[in-house]
Design a protein around this nucleic acid. Structure first.
Lengths: 223, 223
DNA sequence: ACAATAGTGTCTCTAAGACAATATACG
DNA sequence: CGTATATTGTCTTAGAGACACTATTGT
């Protein structure tokens, strides 16, 4: 059987871009300007460009760049959604990616931030994609440093803890949290950099160790 | 932009079928009878059939059925691999699935079982797929009941423990293991069924509770 | 000096692992 | 009865959370 013997599959990528606004997870939505579902809010997505994309991860990065201007946030493959009915144009396949960025980077863009707990009706199976992304982030937050990418660098440990608490939806023990961050070994204090200005003891500023920066390259086959 | 504006992407599924032979993880390989790589050992895989497949999970189940006769093992989406060079025919995309079956079900099939630690050179990026599957199984074995699907029912707890130990590659504490199985709550003892015949106390036989049988339907969007 | 939050030391409690005692088959 | 493995009870130990104490800033 040759490729031509099968009707073409519509191949796309969709990006669930999550960020934290006022201690609440928000998904970035975009108003569609083309059919199908023109005018509706949906996840940023687009066709895979076989001419230019090195792989679907590159497609997702390109889509994100074209639609939001963002260059290289945390970007991780989520899952692939497919079937004959999810897209009215026909049998389609969408590789969903999850991106995490600090909210400050989204200022002024065309993206609309909506709390993941109050999503409007979404076209395709975009709701399932958002739910998969939120589930993934919540799960990985329990044992990994994933939420770090929701935090603008540099940050203090109390700030980072509140990010974890927002994602997990529950308060964390301060001592345990610091022990955990210590043993993950991904953070390094910035000598002399303190968060000052408040009427109390200043907090040490931290940043990701260089080895963990820009995970675009390392997360390719991470799981 | 219309779908036709983009060169067609070659859409396939590949299945990493894992089983346990003599306490060692083995992957099932098949000798390819068509180009590319005709004659080489490779993962069972095939084109997505947009006419007949309800989604890529169905494609994977169909490929498995056609190539091995297996009906409904544990089947879970792993990741999607893509790019211009992985397939000599052109820019391609393969949704990789991981299947787990007891070795007894593979008797007499055309599949060749090879220890995952001694894979021959594989075409496409099939080696990366096997590695992703093994990593996934090892990770999930630490906290889930995934290895149960490598065990033919009914089984005894000592048998199941040895399956876990084989997958994880390390001995487990007997008391902790039984506590863990207890709290996972997926197993039920079969009243009166004992593994007899050996010169020692017989072991209770267990099986999966019905709710956890045939995970094909439940693992669709499991992660 | 006081208020407020950062950072650390220590106690307690829970859960995992080690150890060991008991149970039950076959020969 | 002896041997071998299943199953269960108990002790020990490591890690997580609670609590509280010290540190350091601005007012």
């Amino acid at each position: 059987m040759t490729p031509a013997a099968n009707p073409a599959v519509i191949c796309t990528v969709d990006v669930v871009l999550l960020t934290l606004v006022q201690d609440t997870l928000h998904a970035a939505l975009l108003r569609r300007d083309k059919a199908p579902f023109a005018g509706a809010l949906a996840l940023p997505g687009g066709y895979i460009h076989a001419q230019e994309d090195a792989d679907t991860q590159a497609s997702a990065a390109r889509v994100l760049r074209e639609k939001s201007g963002l260059q290289s946030p945390y970007l991780e493959q989520l899952a692939t959604f497919s079937g004959p009915v999810r897209d009215p144009r026909g049998w389609s396949l969408a590789v969903a990616y999850c991106a995490l960025v600090p909210a400050a980077l989204l200022e002024g863009g065309a993206l609309e931030l909506v709390p993941v707990s109050a999503l409007p009706p979404l076209p395709f199976d975009h709701r399932a994609m958002v739910e998969a992304a939120v589930t993934r982030v919540r799960n990985k937050s329990q044992y990994s440093s994933m939420p770090v990418y929701l935090c603008a660098e540099p940050f203090t440990l109390p700030q980072l803890q509140s990010v974890y608490e927002a994602v997990l939806g529950e308060p964390l023990n301060k001592v345990s949290f610091r022990r955990k961050m210590e043993e993950l070994g991904m953070l390094e204090p910035m000598p002399g950099a303190m968060q000052t200005g408040a009427a109390h003891r200043p907090a040490q500023m931290y940043r990701l160790k260089p080895a963990f920066r820009c995970s675009l390259s390392t997360s390719l086959r991470g799981l």
